[in-house]
Lab assay of single mutants.
Amino acid sequence: RTAFSSEQLARLKREFNENRYLTERRRQQLSSELGLNEAQIKIWFQNKRA
């Protein structure tokens, strides 16, 4: 289980509010910017949509 920092969570929530689905390219960008792997971001979005 991933423990996200408050900064990472704030960024993910802001991104989710703008778009509930990420393109592969956007997921790669977020992964690089947040220091998370793409799978972690993908799962976070899946869980948030559920």
Rank of each mutant, 00 (worst) to 15 (best):
R1Q: 15
R1M: 15
R1C: 15
R1I: 15
T2W: 14
T2N: 12
T2P: 14
T2R: 09
T2M: 07
T2H: 14
A3D: 13
A3F: 14
A3Y: 14
A3V: 12
A3P: 14
F4N: 02
F4V: 05
F4H: 02
F4I: 09
F4A: 02
F4T: 03
F4P: 04
S5E: 03
S5P: 02
S5Y: 02
S5N: 10
S5K: 04
S6W: 09
S6K: 13
S6M: 10
S6Q: 13
E7A: 08
E7G: 05
Q8H: 05
Q8S: 04
Q8D: 05
Q8M: 05
Q8W: 02
L9H: 05
L9F: 04
A10E: 14
A10Q: 09
A10V: 08
A10M: 10
A10K: 08
A10F: 06
R11C: 06
R11Y: 06
R11P: 02
L12C: 04
L12G: 00
L12M: 04
L12S: 00
L12H: 00
K13N: 15
K13L: 15
K13V: 15
K13Q: 14
K13P: 00
R14T: 11
R14F: 09
R14P: 01
R14S: 10
E15C: 03
E15F: 04
E15L: 04
E15A: 11
E15D: 02
E15Q: 03
F16H: 03
F16M: 04
F16Y: 10
F16E: 01
F16V: 02
N17H: 10
N17M: 12
N17E: 14
N17K: 15
N17T: 10
N17C: 12
E18L: 11
E18G: 04
E18D: 07
E18R: 11
E18A: 09
E18N: 09
N19F: 05
N19L: 04
N19G: 05
N19P: 02
R20I: 11
R20C: 08
Y21C: 09
Y21A: 05
Y21K: 06
Y21G: 04
L22D: 10
L22T: 03
L22V: 05
L22R: 01
L22W: 03
L22P: 14
L22E: 05
L22S: 02
L22N: 02
T23N: 09
T23I: 02
T23V: 03
T23M: 02
E24D: 13
E24R: 15
R25C: 09
R25A: 15
R25W: 07
R25S: 13
R26M: 08
R26S: 05
R26T: 06
R26P: 01
R27C: 14
R27T: 15
R27A: 15
R27S: 14
R27K: 11
Q28C: 07
Q28Y: 08
Q28D: 04
Q28R: 11
Q28P: 01
Q29M: 09
Q29P: 01
Q29Y: 07
Q29N: 06
L30K: 00
L30W: 01
L30R: 00
L30F: 01
S31G: 06
S31V: 07
S31Q: 05
S32G: 07
S32P: 02
S32F: 13
S32R: 12
E33Y: 03
E33R: 02
E33D: 07
E33V: 05
E33F: 03
E33L: 05
E33I: 06
L34N: 01
L34P: 00
L34D: 01
L34T: 07
G35Y: 03
G35P: 00
G35A: 05
L36I: 12
L36G: 00
L36T: 03
L36V: 10
N37S: 15
N37Y: 06
N37P: 15
E38K: 05
E38D: 05
E38I: 07
E38P: 13
E38M: 06
A39G: 10
A39N: 13
A39F: 12
A39M: 14
A39R: 09
A39Q: 14
Q40V: 15
Q40M: 11
Q40D: 15
Q40N: 05
Q40Y: 09
Q40S: 12
I41A: 00
I41Q: 01
I41V: 07
I41S: 00
K42H: 15
K42S: 14
K42E: 15
K42M: 12
K42L: 15
K42G: 08
I43F: 10
I43T: 12
I43C: 11
I43W: 15
I43L: 13
W44A: 02
W44E: 00
F45L: 03
F45S: 01
F45P: 00
F45M: 03
F45D: 01
Q46T: 07
Q46I: 12
Q46G: 06
Q46A: 13
Q46W: 11
Q46R: 12
Q46N: 10
Q46D: 14
N47Y: 11
N47Q: 13
N47L: 13
N47W: 15
N47R: 13
N47E: 13
K48I: 07
K48S: 09
K48Q: 15
K48A: 15
K48N: 10
K48F: 09
R49K: 06
R49I: 15
R49A: 09
A50Q: 11
A50S: 10
A50V: 09
A50W: 09
A50L: 08
A50I: 10
A50G: 08
A50K: 14
A50P: 05
